[in-house]
Amino acid sequence: MTDTLQPMNKISVHGLTMNFGSFVVMKDLGFDIAEKDIFAIVGESGCGKSTLLRHLIGLIEPAKGSICYGGESFTAATESERMRFMGRFGVMYQSGALWSSMTLAENIAMPIEEMAGITSREALDLAYYKLALVGLSGFENHYPSQISGGMKKRAGIARAIALDPEIIFLDEPGAGLDPLSSQRLDELILKLRDTLGSTVVMVTHELASIFAIANNSVFLDVHTRTQGATGNPVWLRDHSENENVRLFYNRGKTGNPSDQHD
């Protein structure tokens, strides 16, 4: 019944359990992501953040539980309905996952060309525009192997926003970037959210970037194998009941929640 009371929730996850074979990665995950949220999936390395993301975009089937988009069940959807859901997603993978046999412009133009009524000339023009948005003008005809890791991430984001998606999924956008690039990336994500009106779901453990842009988060606790807390990361840092959560958000410095000052 809570579903009907909260129609604004873009994404809701209920009782999600994730397995690798017989090994339970995480159990009993439940959280809601509202429209235009910048939602961070947070936790220690190897706790299953990327796995959760892959569940959300339908690459892995959950062992238990459900994932709903706008009140409609994604887990129970048929193959063709899923395609419709997935048409609203834009995904950036950890390594960029650019198609290595195509230039950057072709990488971005390919999904656009599939849309009805778009000529390949127009698709390329759009691709050039998207690359310019992420600051990669001039690299349109480079192949992914010819650019740096940070540029691959940005190109990956350009491809994720190729179709102006409702929901943008980012897998570790800031990892391995220098502080300036990382900061520019944060700005880019904020701008994309404000201009496209997209909801952003990102896997990350860059605290600076989490506090700077995320307004909602879930913390996956590797020790208890379930979620430690959900909510605004700044609030969780100072007030969470769960010690693991506070430790994480404070870079390992323990402290009583009442001792903290804002």
């Binding site: 892959r54 975009i57 690459l59 395609m83 993978y93």
Partner: peptide, 17 residues
């Protein structure tokens, strides 16, 4: 195999290819 290792096949899938 290397496309698979680099998540390129996943990327195709999420674009509906």
């Amino acid at each position: 195999g290397s496309m698979n290792a680099n998540e390129e096949i996943d990327a195709l899938r999420t674009f509906g290819f």
